[in-house]
Design a protein around this nucleic acid. Structure first.
Lengths: 123, 123
DNA sequence: ATAGTATATTGACGTGAATCAATATACCCT
DNA sequence: AGGGTATATTGATTCACGTCAATATACTAT
């Protein structure tokens, strides 16, 4: 390992250490990318309320009930349900005209576990 | 409590229950607003790496070291540090030309606790 | 004073998210 | 077939966020 001559680094007052060699993230950009994706899917009031309602019910919930429970219009509900489904957190099923959604319990538990692990890095 | 006559509600097939009375969020919009604010502050790669670096160090870290550790320019680092400080998660101190940041340990622990509690609602 | 450095702020730009009206799709019923 | 309903999709709009060049600020050193 080649060290620069002292004159070549920016001058610092002694005790005001800059260029601290272990001020290095333990998480790569790829890791923080996954972590932020996990957090982002939860970080919206509508999605949080949707998950809240779905997670408390044992079985499936009709979209019409989800619409009634939330302060946004039907296309917006549909939009956020789609995002949650793409994230693997919920599953859907059609019965006739109606669509029913339920949580994917293992996926939701896994998400919780990952977020717990991200937070543990700061503890 | 006044109930509508049965003929006045939208017709449903029996067994395809809609208007489920307990499909109701347990979290108000105000609560989900606080929760999403807590999640949003973490849900960015640069802020997560900043917290990662700061949380691992016992003392303060010079901004110049934070800049060196992250893949963004100086104004961007400054911007995210400001957001984290406004959120109460970090504190800053100036020593001469240099600025030093450190985590606010109680605030970070409190944030972790709140997020744990939000996640517990889905468990 | 003058020059130089570290950090903060401003202002502008690009990008993506959120929302919803309008429309499409798929299903039921007569 | 035709009309009605529930949900999904499209397209347009708005708006907040992230980034950075340029500049300001505040300090150091000569």
């Amino acid at each position: 390992m080649i060290l620069p001559k002292l004159e070549e680094v920016a001058p610092r007052r002694p005790g005001e250490r800059c260029c601290d060699p272990d001020a290095i993230p333990s998480m790569s950009l790829a890791e923080t990318g996954l972590a932020t994706a996990d957090l982002e899917i939860l970080a919206h009031p509508v999605r949080m309320q949707l998950l809240d309602v779905l997670a408390r019910k044992e079985g499936s919930v009709c979209v019409c009930d989800l619409e009634a429970a939330l302060p946004v219009k039907q296309p917006t509900v549909s939009h956020h349900l789609k995002l949650l489904r793409k994230a693997g957190l919920i599953q859907s099923e059609r019965r006739g005209l109606y669509a029913y959604y339920r949580v994917d319990r293992p996926a939701l538990d896994a998400l919780r576990g990952r977020i717990d692990r991200y937070l543990a890095k700061f503890g």
